[in-house]
Design a protein around this nucleic acid. Structure first.
Lengths: 350, 350
DNA sequence: TTGTACGCGTTATCAG
DNA sequence: CTGATAACGCGTACAA
């Protein structure tokens, strides 16, 4: 049973291929409703499906977008993929994925593969600090950065409102009466998101006149435990706030992302610290275990659906814009999608 | 700057398009090394990239495979996607993903979308119990089932050795001296994997003459906590094993997958049970938190890389087989990829 | 309102 | 060893 083509439909319906093509593209602006019905019927009967390769060749458009994820093991990435997948499907568009595993080399390769595969545009959660590969692609096809930015090139970017989320997390801890604050980060501050959150944290600590600092958690759990213990020791109280000397100091920790949080929990297990008694805790990223640990962990949750919508919106308008006759690449835009704070037991002193 | 085609290369190299095409397909079995060099040079200089749409149209092959995942939020799925993605890339093949979110309706839609998109074959982690959509697709394109089977149709299937893993998990608990065993499952036993594991568990419990049963954990944490407490009460000791009456009973729990395990942990938090003192625990699926909870949770880890390799191997041989002149669809095969037990503190009585 | 004819970029066949 | 040529299936001017 050979493939059934537009020609077959035409024959069986007693019309020309052109008419069938018009029908398929809903260009029945002026088409006798009679032939329309005949065509519809034949298509129905034969189960005809247009050949995408032929269409792509002709239109130079595949209705396919590429998505490059830096770290699929991060639930945030999974959630994004799910949303993107769903929303793209609604627009009749397929998603070609690539996983860079936080390796800029394979990100570059993925970019090339996707371009070769002929995707109409690319959404990339980059892990690279080299703008060159992205620049090369972005010269030809629409590219939207997701979550992470990269220096040296101005591309459309969709992120959460990380600064505001840091502020709100600090609010939570401050209301609970913390006397010291630490933002827990990773050793290698590669991602722009982490950098942005850290900068804001330090900014706010200063602005609010609080004690505390950014703390790069040691990869070794034992060392990390030592770091944490140090943070919990009674502080040397500055003379001008002597009023607080009578109180036991309360330290508030904010994990800059879910993986750091997990390492923190692991290290915490090596100490005799009890949360939320000896310390309060909050974290970014809503992982499943956040319900469970410490009776619930206060979390800054990103709006994955909103991020997906924004990224796709951005990408598709660029694609459409570009495919117009003489269309030009639209100017890059930066979009912030607000996240949500979920207050839980870990940031309420008991 | 218009797209550079094979024709342009031909002109600039002073040869015919046919020769360039031969060069591209490495068919230089008989080609003057001189023209070969010239072509290579022109291609290099112009940065020519073959147009995939045209090639697909001509060859009726896209070098693209579809992957349908039932639940991307399950880390097992993420890991599989990462592996598949990587290994497919090595074979110069792109992956089009679809997420069914455990909804058989959208799985069917995804199947159709992927077929329309023209993928050469499909790997599906099915969530459906209706073989009809799969049957329709499998009549045309190679389909490999991943992890989950479906009744009413015989397709190639790649899974872990679930029965053996259940056995080994039981071994762990038995060696630790458990006197009662419970397999924790979800209420709706939809997946073939869960069914398979549960069946094996009951089989082994009988075969080994152990006490215990499968326990469908209530979705409500409070109710689940009650269920668990019941399991921990001193047992009514059968008369013929009266020797054990003096000992406190030790219950061993096996979570049938990572999500059930998490619900179990949550419920456990509502009781005053301490693991691994009052009960021992083991689980399927290596989640990040397994390092952390209970000082480490004994885990049956699936070999995601091996599963990916097997699935792709299966799919590609079918694709090749089928694309041969007069090639027929190869017979379905069932492949079991062995997983690994990671013993941790949660299954060692202290 | 509909049909004709061409071309999108590639590969396979066949002839030289 | 290489070149001309005809498809692959579709969309779209242009003609009718």
């Amino acid at each position: 049973m050979a493939r059934v083509t537009i020609k077959d439909i035409a024959e069986q319906a007693g019309v020309s291929p052109a008419t069938v093509s018009r029908f398929l593209n809903k260009r029945y602006g002026s088409m006798s409703s009679e032939t329309r019905d005949r065509i519809a019927q034949v298509i129905e009967r034969t189960g005809y499906k247009p050949n995408n390769a032929a269409r792509s060749l002709r239109l130079d458009r595949t209705n396919t977008i590429g998505v490059i994820l830096a770290d699929i093991r991060n639930p945030f990435s999974s959630a994004m993929l799910e949303e993107l997948s769903q929303q793209a499907a609604q627009r009749g568009c397929s998603i070609v994925t690539a996983i860079s595993s936080n390796n800029s080399q394979s990100e570059a390769e993925a970019l090339e593969r996707l371009v070769d595969a002929g995707v109409d545009g690319i959404i990339v959660n980059t892990c690279s600090n080299d703008p060159a590969p992205l620049r090369a692609v972005a010269a030809t096809k629409p590219v939207v950065l997701l979550d992470r930015d990269v220096e040296g090139i101005d591309l459309s970017l969709v992120t959460s409102n990380n600064a505001a989320l840091i502020d709100e997390l600090l609010d939570q801890l401050q209301q609970a009466g913390c006397t010291r604050y630490h933002l827990l980060t990773e050793y290698d501050e590669t991602s722009s998101v982490r950098r942005g959150r850290a900068d804001r944290f330090e900014h706010e600590i200063r602005r609010r006149g609080l004690a505390g600092c950014v703390l790069a958690l040691d990869p070794d759990a034992g060392h990390a435990a030592a770091q944490i213990s140090t943070c919990l020791e009674p502080a040397e109280i500055p003379s001008h706030s002597a009023a607080a000397t009578s109180c036991k100091p309360i330290t508030g920790f904010i994990a800059i992302n879910g993986l750091v949080f997990l390492r923190f929990v692991e290290a915490l297990g090596l100490t005799d610290t009890v949360v939320p008694r000896d310390a309060l805790v909050a974290t970014f990223d809503e992982y499943p275990w956040n319900h469970v640990l410490f009776g619930g962990v206060t979390t800054a949750m990103q709006d994955t659906a909103g991020l997906a919508t924004a990224a796709l919106e951005q990408l598709f308008t660029a694609i459409d814009q570009l495919s117009r006759r003489g269309g030009f690449m639209p100017a890059p835009q930066h979009i912030e999608v607000p996240g949500t704070i979920i207050p839980r037991a870990s940031s309420r002193l008991r």
